[in-house]
Design a protein around this nucleic acid. Structure first.
Lengths: 251, 251
DNA sequence: CGTGCTTTTGAAAATCATCAAGTATAGTGG
DNA sequence: CCACTATACTTGATGATTTTCAAAAGCACG
């Protein structure tokens, strides 16, 4: 159940293109777009691009927080653990997500790559110094934090008050909406296909359920013609409206 | 179960002392202390101090977010609702708490006074403008948001993975620690008495349980000599260490 | 001293977890 | 390319924690 400890050093295959930021395909999604093109050089000087293998833990809960991370490719799961191994995944970080916001000196959560990832790593101290020169970026960070706070509140509602069916429906609906907005101009219709790079165990730990309940609920959705399950990591949405109704508790 | 709608206008007994900020007893707890004494006048010009009756909803989920609030006395519960009335309380806002952080134009949560409250109300637009002149305050807001994010993650762990006993123990432990730090110099020993201004229903909706489970669990704690219950709104901590062990899942 | 609310306590029911196989799927090495 | 193994996923039976339903006991307030 628990993540095996890897002995290898963290830095895996560092990449050093001429200018990591200017052509960064993740910039438009991320906090970095608060910085104008002419100033990108200063940001680039701080950014250490890294490749991270799937399954690797790159933030350990409780470690001293020396770095910020910005996800440029792939997906990570963020989690908190109880001493006996119980795990709560607090979110999935995809392209553009900024990690490491914490006032305290230690990370309040762990992070592990779900898929092979690319991230930009920043020294906390240096980036904080940089923030003094770019108030726009600080504003952007506040926006990001506020958005995450809203998402966290929504997740508390899910964990505290929704049934297993409602939780899975919510999960699929959010995924479908996010997948669509990533590709198409914002706020279009939801995707009709959802990919699940994470395992059933991850989904369970995200929704506060067990893998069995996740599996059973998805099979039931399928038998109700709400979804299709072409493969374990792919879900086709057949009745988005019904799922949305379920997700919002309209039964 | 649902909060009755009040017909009265929101603004209850506005207070207008000569300078609401300089002598504000909540300033040291709040974001306002990011502003130096000489600049307090500009902040004071924006602050509208209000008194709010217990039970009054002063932020309605979904309403257009026109104001920020800063709690100067009393306690509020913040919550999200499902259409059928299920409620999740996402937090309790006490003295010093800043409310209204939201990027979107509408509030993502509702807020209702648990006790009689005093708050300072700010126009969002005006306060945002003020932020441009006081980057220190923006930094402070980011800190606040980061702290809330950490708390939210902790609450997700509680809601998703802890048992009823562990949830109640966590709740009491956090309260005991907070009560102590409010009165005494920070990071001293936890309070040996905890006041619960909120109802059992509020506690249940905060912990993702029912009032019956909250009541039963507390009585069981009492029979196990972990606490005493002199009155429904007052709990004496008899074995803090045991509660803390429970809270962290050490059984 | 009722009246209405909150809280407590009890019994029954239900959702979800646990335990236990069995079935896919993917990765490995022959 | 194909067994072979390990892992992930699904499915079934049972069980337990928590909810639901019900009612009594406390408390606050007029």
């Amino acid at each position: 159940m628990m993540t095996p400890v890897r002995a290898r050093p963290l830095v895996v295959e560092p990449i050093r293109p001429t200018d990591p930021c200017t052509n960064c395909e993740a910039r438009s999604f991320s906090v970095c777009n608060a910085i104008e093109a002419k100033d990108l050089e200063r940001l680039a000087a701080l950014a250490v691009p890294l490749a991270i293998d799937a399954g690797r833990t790159f933030i350990e809960e409780g470690d001293t927080a020396e770095h910020f991370f910005n996800v440029t490719a792939g997906t990570a799961k963020l989690f908190k653990l109880l001493p006996d191994g119980r795990r709560q995944i607090t979110g999935f970080a995809c392209v553009g997500t900024f990690l490491g916001l914490a006032v305290s000196s230690t990370y309040a959560f762990g992070a592990e790559a779900v898929e092979p990832m690319r991230v930009c790593r920043f020294s906390r101290a240096k980036l904080k110094a940089l923030l003094d020169d770019f108030p726009a970026m600080e504003k952007r960070l506040l926006e990001v934090a506020s958005n995450e706070l809203v998402a966290a509140q929504e997740q508390m509602l899910l964990l505290g008050r929704k049934t297993a069916r409602e939780r899975l429906a919510s999960f699929l609906v959010v995924r479908a909406v996010n997948m669509a907005s990533g590709v198409l101009p914002c706020s279009s219709r939801p995707a009709d296909k959802v990919t699940l790079p994470m395992t059933r165990s991850d989904i369970a730990d995200y929704l506060g359920l067990t893998i069995e309940t996740v599996s059973r609920t998805l099979t039931r959705f399928k038998s109700e013609r709400l979804i299709d399950i072409p493969s374990a990591s792919e879900i086709a949405i057949r009745d988005f409206a019904a799922l949305e109704g379920l997700a919002t508790g309209l039964n």
